[in-house]
Amino acid sequence: MRILVCIKRVPAPGARIVVEPDGQTIDTANLGFTISPHEECAVEAAVQLVEQHGGNVTVMTLGPEGAEEQLRHAVSVGATDAILIPAGERDWDPQATARALTDAIGDAESDGAFDLILFGNESADSGGYQVGVRVSRALGRPMVNGIKGIEIGKGVVTLRRETDGGSELYELPLPAVVGVKEGITLPRYPTLRGRLASKKADVRTFEAGEQPGGQSMVALANPPEQVKQTVMLTDAAAAVDVMEELGLL
């Protein structure tokens, strides 16, 4: 089976994000970059499906030239083909992103459709929750988000989504689109062989024109810092006093 995973380059989670004085971009000088966490797990899930059922994994990203690093990382853990849609340093809006991805997928499918296209549930940085759904609609394929389990059957895929205290199952006909959540599986580390393959890999470029939608960013801002007077407790008894005061005991 052929699987496509759409990924995004984002600053490593946990980093302190500082907005530049112009309010338009974030200060990236001290930031490391990674594949957005849900998508990192989607890549791993795709590689495992291919190990189980045969086939290959293609990764695609829309982003700055530096995003080639994330495509090569995906190759180092098992993807075989990589496609970059150059978009400069500034984020494209969700509609523009979806339109460009749809065009690039159409181009990549000239020799046959992907059985499965995986997205992350939402990107760690902009968190728009929509690009995958827009692409699925444009391609006329079914999609469910928030997926933590994928099983391939005969012409169908069974998807598991966690809810508060339980899980829901969905069955979609292939080809289908899936929004994956972190926790579906743990990403592997690249092997030495994988690293070598990723260095040699040919990253293809697909040029897509930017077709903006109806949402435009005006400015970014760091929310006001919460100033909190932390009460320092001296021992366990003081902690239990607090629990009593809060009426928890």
Partner: peptide, 21 residues
């Protein structure tokens, strides 16, 4: 999860912008 998912499907049907969160 559901709110964002449903809204994205509406937005995709209308090809209209959707602002999350």
């Amino acid at each position: 999860d559901r709110g964002n998912e449903v809204m994205a499907h509406i937005a995709a049907r209308l090809d209209a912008p959707m602002v999350a969160n």
